[in-house]
Structure formats: C-alpha cells, structure tokens
C-alpha cells in the first residue's frame, strides 16, 4: 500500500512539474496592442461586430482577421484610432474613407407598443433603459450608445434606432463652402 501511495504521489508531482514547466515555456503573451485596442473600443460588449465582446474583437483585429471598421457604435473615430494602431492595413473591410461620419444613434421606444417585459433593460450594456415590469420603459439618451442590443430582444418591435436629436448645445454651423468651389462650378 505504501508503494502504491508513493508511486502515485511521485507520478502526480512529476506530471505537475511538467505541466508547470510547459506553461512557462510555451506561455503565449497577449500582444499589448490587444489591450490598447480594447481600451479604444466602447467596452459595452454589445456583440454587433460578431465577436465575443470587445476583447474578442480586439484580438481578432490583432490577428488580422477583422477589419478596423467593425465597430458600428464606435463609428469613424474608433476606426481611425484602430487603424493608427494596426497600421493602415484595412484591406479586410470597407475603407475608412468610405465610412461616412455617421450621426450618433440612440434607441427610441414607441410607448404604445411597450409591454413592460423588461427584456431590453436587462440586456442594455450601459443601463441606459429604465423601467419596471409592466411599466413603460424609456431610454436615457445621454447614456445610450446605439448598440442595437435592445432592438433585437424586443418582442413587440417597439424599439428603433434613431439619430440623436440635435439640441442648441450640440448644434453648430455647417462648414462654409471652399473658396474655390464657386470658381470651379463657374468654370464647369
């Protein structure tokens, strides 16, 4: 019985050491760019990119399998920053220049259709939806990122994404025409 116990513990110890050594030797370091990219991504893990969360998306970009334009809530700004990190290699997807500067989107709830099922506010990654069971829910626009998660779970299709309404605070003048624009049209 002593031999059996001794041999089993020796085997266990030996295999344990082997595993430990292997973990050290074959350790795969996550590239620091992944962390860096994860910081740039919104961090809501909304899943619109098709990867498991923002970390997954960052890893996919680092491996080169995903375009930098994968994050719809992040929009053009995030794409530009990601492109800066991975270099201008964005051949995997649509060009950034083609990516229009989309207006920020927010969720809007049609109150007539809301049944108060609480599915959407359980799903919201930024807690931007308030409500209770059998009460009409509403969206806090300042906190909404327009990630689409609530739209998909709503059983009555009462939620749509809309462009964020402009207020006096966020309004600004349009860019005036280029000085040469008039001449160009005149020549044409």
């Amino acid at each position: 019985m002593i031999t059996a116990a001794a041999s089993m513990s020796a085997l266990g110890l030996g295999l344990g050491l082997l595993l430990g050594a292997a973990a050290r030797k074959f350790h795969v370091k996550t590239p620091p760019v992944v962390d860096e990219m994860e910081r740039i991504l919104p961090g809501t893990n909304c899943g619109q990119c098709g990867y498991p969360g923002c970390r997954g998306a960052a890893e996919a970009i680092a491996e080169g399998g995903a375009p930098v334009t994968l994050c719809p809530p992040g929009g053009r700004d995030v794409a530009l920053k990601l492109a800066e990190i991975v270099g201008v290699d964005c051949s995997g997807g649509p060009e950034i220049s083609g990516m229009t500067d989309i207006e920020p989107q927010v969720a809007f709830i049609f109150e007539d259709h809301c049944t108060g099922c609480t599915k959407c506010f359980k799903r919201c990654p930024t807690d931007a939806i308030v409500g209770a069971a059998k009460q009409i829910h509403t969206v806090i626009w300042d906190a909404c990122t327009g990630c689409d998660a609530c739209v998909q779970v709503c059983p009555t299709e009462a939620i749509v994404l809309r462009s964020k309404p402009r207020t006096l605070q966020s309004w600004y003048w349009d860019k005036p025409d280029q000085p040469l624009a008039a001449l160009r049209t005149g020549a044409a």
Partner: peptide, 29 residues
C-alpha cells in the same frame, strides 16, 4: 469657418467624454 470648427471640436470632445462615460457605465454594470 471658425464657428464650424469650434462646434466640431466641441462635439469631438463631448464624444470622447461620452465614450469614457460609456466605459464607466459598462464597467459598473
């Protein structure tokens, strides 16, 4: 043009602020 640029810069700034807020909210959740 300067009015436009100031508005645009303020908007960029507020978006940056909102991104930070989003991260904070997501982390809190």
């Amino acid at each position: 043009g300067f009015s436009f640029a100031k508005g645009k810069l303020a908007e960029t700034e507020s978006r940056k602020h909102q991104q930070e807020e989003t991260r904070r909210l997501a982390a809190a959740r």
